[in-house]
Nucleic acid binder design. Structure first.
Lengths: 175, 175
DNA sequence: CGTCTCCTTGAGTTAACTCAACGTACGTGG
DNA sequence: CCACGTACGTTGAGTTAACTCAAGGAGACG
């Protein structure tokens, strides 16, 4: 029943670690924005990991955070209303952009059409449109020119039920 | 908006690898069936990984499969109808049970009430009830006494749109 | 100027939800 | 043995949130 976006990657992500250990890709990647792509031979990575095991642990940690983001998608698209889903997506993208330093003022990149937002949060385009309008009218957030502008973070994250723990941005959490 | 189950673990799974590298748990675990729990000190695991790095890679691979299962949950709960969601869950549980040898004949454990199934696939109990009845009437599958009985695998997996690639059961896929 | 993509809006339909009630099986305590 | 409580599955009626479909408007671009 239609396309489903599984996750959105931003600068610095390693979107294809899966292929390192699993023979078959169960999904595909596509670029939504201007991208630079670097590719590495599996053999090179594996020998790097052998020489510097701590890098392997860091990659592994990255995988764990990806999984946490997937979990968040499940709860977001599970029980919540349309407005809450869209608001939650906005919160996540803004927070992740902040972590990698892609925020300027109260805005960050959001290279998604409303159709694509719908494919992320599992809603039809009409519903997405009405939800974004609600958020705009309530001065929570708005999208202009492929950028997300946060107007009132507190209200937005309340609408979203946003709990950013799962992003594990506190790098000192490393043990 | 209500409880949301994120994933179901079965015998042999390592449900808490996350805590190894991330300081905060963003979710909790609960037992749905009789369970035996083994716990290990992080320090012990880390020193084991140092001595035998290939075990680390195997754990990492496990994490990647978990992530693949999360992705599948996202598509399952995203665009599909109630019957398709429930059927898909049944297919996944049956296949995973088969991989670990927990299938006897055409049945496997399914220690979930209809309420809990709803919390997995994001549906109300009434809808889950009607969906399971549909599957039963169409002789696809039925649940009796906390066990899932598959009556017609082909029809069930068609209803489910089930594509088991993501479970990566082919261990030779390891590189 | 035409075309394309995207956003917007309205009207009608439907799938799923909510709420409430009832049946059945099972276990427990009197 | 019976009375009771509890958990779970089942069913019906009414409501609603989201969907579908169709149309129109704004902006970018050749």
């Amino acid at each position: 029943g239609g396309r489903q976006y599984l996750s959105l990657h931003i600068a610095g992500d390693l979107p294809d670690l899966q292929s390192l250990f699993l023979g078959v890709m169960d999904h595909s990647l596509c670029a939504l924005d201007k991208s630079q792509i670097a590719s590495f031979r599996h053999s090179d990575i594996l020998s790097l990991l052998k020489r510097a095991p701590s890098i392997g642990l860091a990659f592994w940690r990255h995988t764990l955070i990806d999984a946490a983001i997937f979990r968040q998608s499940i709860t977001r698209n599970g029980t919540r209303s349309a407005v809450a889903r869209v608001a939650n997506l906005f919160c996540e993208q803004f927070t992740r952009a902040r972590i990698v330093g892609a925020v300027s003022g109260w805005s960050c990149p959001l290279p998604l059409s409303q159709t694509q937002i719908g494919q992320v949060v599992g809603l039809s385009i009409a519903t997405v449109n009405r939800a974004t309008q609600t958020l705009r009218k309530e001065h929570c957030a708005e999208v202009r020119g492929r950028r997300l502008h946060v107007l009132n973070w507190r209200r937005l994250s309340e609408q979203a039920g946003f709990e950013p723990v799962y992003l594990h941005e506190d790098l000192s959490g490393r043990k």
